[in-house]
Amino acid sequence: MIYLKTPDEVRVMRKANLIVRDTLLMVRDRIKAGVSTAEVDRWVREYIESRGAYPSCLGYEGYPASTCISIDDVVVHGIPSPKTYIEEGQIVGVDLCATIDGYHGDSARTFPIGKVSKEKLDLVQAAEDAFFEGIKGIKAGDRIGDISGAIQALVEGRGYSVVRALTGHGIGREMHEDPAVPNYGEKGRGIRLRPGMTIAVEPMINLGRYDVYTERDGWTVRTRDHSPSAHYENTVAVWDDGIEILTI
């Protein structure tokens, strides 16, 4: 079921999404080598709660933390741990959600730690570029495949691969709503975008092949060839005059 939001509902959603935005800015300014992923998770929970919101990843389908922190070849859903320390040269994906006034926000960034190889930096930049290429010119009446195809074209054009096993998603009163928003597809295909649709567009891209697997913890998704992966995500609203990024 796809729920279309009114402009007033999107204004409320923006509140959750600006909290998510500010949380990621806070993480960006503090994350560094030597910090454990559990500590980053604690910062996130404390910050989101200080803003009167709740970290909606926590407890979602049994997920044990407020953030997903995914290092190098971990694509998404890396579980924070006091035994996992961030190291110089890594790229660290931080994906977090917040809910306030009944609506969710969702965003992710991949942070380079210290001196990082050009190979990894280019991958991180490509994930961001893919997001913006995906939403470029998109408005109500276009199709999901217009977003998906644009993301895939940019990513593969740069020699990377798009993760196919995981997708973006609708979001609003639930963290995951319909529709799915794949990062691969064909322009002109898929469901039609309508005014008031709110979706999380989230390119997940790998330096190597697109195959991934889930570890025995049931959450951590890793590239099968252990090549690095980068993730970039924003929640957006679709309108007749274009896309509104709610996490900016």
Partner: peptide, 28 residues
Amino acid sequence: QVIGDKLLEGKQVFDSEIKSALRVYSGK
């Protein structure tokens, strides 16, 4: 802050970021 920091760091700012940020101020 997102757009301001990108500009200061010399990173690319996208038109969709600016348009979306301005919606907040226009009250839409």
